[in-house]
Design a protein around this nucleic acid. Structure first.
Lengths: 184, 184
DNA sequence: TTGCTTACTTACTAGTAAGTAAGTATTTTT
DNA sequence: AAAAATACTTACTTACTAGTAAGTAAGCAA
């Protein structure tokens, strides 16, 4: 992917997180590059292509991250995940999954599939990490790991939504409670 | 409020939950009523007025609900709340708070204030209900009630988002785990 | 019966949306 | 040196956006 394309994907990522997929246009991409609308269409023929680019970039980044964390104790892997969300909270972003889930019904089918894939990626990794953490006495919870992964995932996702409305204190409270529950 | 206005608010509520505030237009309101665009502007001069109407209606409905549940054991009050979300999940809706939080940065300031108020309403009630439930040995959790309220609220909110992407099984799992944690 | 209110329609503005077709300048490949 | 690919611009279309101004028909109120 060319440098311009990558920078456009990065900008679109920001716009999706800050304003939502249906609340930005090619104009918002073109202007910061001092280009015309049509130049963006040259790189991404349809808006869905840009959206798919953003999701695939995020999925790759996630894959890189979990590979990097692989050797760490599960407790620390989880803290790294929370740290990713904390940074987004600080920047006023919500998570890509949350933003695109809200707009899900208005997305092109190819984009919906990518969103689905991203959700499965995260849940798959999280439930495995939780299961291993329990086996190694690093993490403590009852019930199935997949259920606990769903609880944690929804906590993190919506914590960014609520922080946007009620302030970053919300995220601090939720992430602290999350760790207190798993590491008593 | 006239009957027409109320029906328009109800339709807008649906559209916000299914497609998002920025993904419907006055045309989507006017057409089902066999009216012209301008007729909707007669009832709601700006789109924000319609949005505020929707939020206020929801806040009133919530106030009516919690008043109705007031005398019940806290365990049952919580089950009633979950039931509200279950019905929305079944209908393919996400919660109003979740939808409008995503679009928060693009909303008019008067609408942002209403969203804030709605969030505070729910959290206030939920943390009090949890605190009372613990006092009456109905509900079991550790930490502050406000923190637990945040955990449960985010679980429910994002469960609808994830159900939209991965199917209604997600909601079933989350709501079951939620109750298993509080009522061991 | 005159005047006011309610609930619209018609016709419009001004701006934005995604997307396309044809042309151009620069660089790369053959 | 010619051909082709790259990265755009110019100019356009079609469709929709929120919002407004002026007019109208029906009903009610003094």
């Amino acid at each position: 992917m060319s440098e311009t394309k990558e920078k456009m994907v990065s900008l679109a990522d920001q716009l999706i997180r800050v304003r939502g997929f249906n609340a930005f246009s090619y104009k918002d991409i073109a202007e910061p590059f001092d280009m015309k609308n049509a130049a963006v269409h040259y790189h991404f023929p349809a808006k869905a292509d840009l959206g798919i680019g953003v999701i695939q970039h995020e999925r790759n980044k996630f894959a890189t991250n979990i590979a990097k964390w692989k050797k760490l104790p599960e407790q620390e892997q989880l803290q790294h995940l929370i740290e990713v969300f904390r940074k987004h909270c600080h920047a006023g972003n919500i998570c890509l999954m949350g933003s695109l889930s809200t707009d899900y019904n208005t997305l092109a089918p190819e984009m919906q599939l990518e969103v689905q894939g991203m959700a499965e990626d995260i849940l798959h990794w999280l439930s495995h990490t939780l299961e291993n953490g329990r086996k190694h006495k690093q993490l403590h919870f009852h019930g199935e790991a997949i259920d606990r992964a769903l609880m944690i995932m929804t906590n993190l996702q919506a914590s960014l939504l609520m922080s946007r409305v009620l302030g970053p204190e919300i995220f601090t409270r939720i992430s602290r409670q999350l760790l207190d529950d798993l590491i008593p």
